[in-house]
């Protein structure tokens, strides 16, 4: 909380990159998401917090098009959109970095960043232009820890792998980047690197959704915090309006003083 004022922009005046209204999602008899409202703003890191089973994974998979929603509306940059598959999401500029990173160990950094969307000249792979673009993207994100962009991913540390996965998401002129617990398995120094990178993602104009269980990370890097409780959004507020205790209460009970769900909201 060293300098919260700098981060407290007035995002409500801006148009959200992604806007969810009344989103519901069930798997069979189990309703996982209830009437979810969520706004994600460009240049802003939104921390998505919630206990295990609160619906964080389902929510991001819905946004990624992997689990299409049952009802409710999704607006992307003000336009209503249908997200019926990962390709729909990718076309809009939504990129998800999953916890397992989805990198191929036997390919190098450039090859991984362009996997599935290789640049070609005729039938040939255009290695030169891919290498340049990969290097540009990494440089833009001020990534200094990689020795070579032609290093095999198998030789990278956990933090470097996370970095490559994030850079891969950024390469595609993405507007919204969703990060699923990017610091979960990292040491102190590597967590630092990744948090810096998350901050730079937002500073370069991306809307960032950042899933984490770590309160230190939330207050370190987030501009807004959205807390999920049993599939409902308990709060979606600027980070300056809450403190750590309140966020933990929102996660564990869905309420904290004036904030959070009305007591009767959980009855149904």
């Amino acid at each position: 909380m060293s300098a919260p004022d700098q981060r407290t922009t007035t995002p409500t005046l801006e148009r959200p990159t992604l806007s969810l209204r009344g989103v519901n999602k069930s798997f069979g008899a189990v309703q996982v998401l209830h009437d979810v409202h969520l706004d994600v703003y460009p240049g802003t890191v939104t921390a998505l917090v919630g206990d295990n089973g609160a619906g964080k994974s389902t929510l991001i998979k819905s946004i990624a098009g992997i689990h299409p929603i049952d009802s409710g509306t999704v607006e992307f940059e003000g336009e209503p959109v249908q997200l019926n598959g990962p390709r729909d999401a990718a076309r809009l500029g939504i990129e998800v970095v999953y916890q397992d990173l989805a990198l191929a160990d036997n390919l190098d950094v450039v090859q991984n960043m362009f996997l599935g969307r290789e640049r070609k000249r005729g039938i040939l792979l255009d290695e030169a232009s891919m290498e340049e673009a990969a290097r540009d993207t990494l440089a833009k994100l001020s990534v200094r820890t990689l020795k070579s962009v032609r290093q095999l991913v198998s030789s990278l540390s956990g933090g470097q792998r996370q970095t490559v996965a994030i850079a891969k998401a950024v390469l595609w002129e993405s507007k919204l980047v969703i990060l699923d617990e990017p610091t979960a398995a990292l040491g102190v120094a590597q967590t630092r690197q990744v948090l810096d990178l998350v901050r730079r993602l937002a500073d370069t104009g991306h809307a960032v959704v950042f899933i984490t269980h770590n309160m230190v990370d939330v207050f370190e890097v987030a501009d807004r915090v959205a807390a999920l409780y049993l599939g409902r959004v308990a709060a979606d507020v600027p980070i300056s309006e809450v403190d750590r205790t309140q966020v933990i209460e929102l996660i564990t009970s869905g309420r904290s003083g004036e904030l959070g769900l009305a007591p009767d909201a959980l009855e149904d």
């Binding site: 290097r135 001020s142 990689l146 962009v149």
Partner: peptide, 8 residues
Amino acid sequence: PAAGFEGD
């Protein structure tokens, strides 16, 4: 100056 990749 700014970039890493000294290996390259």
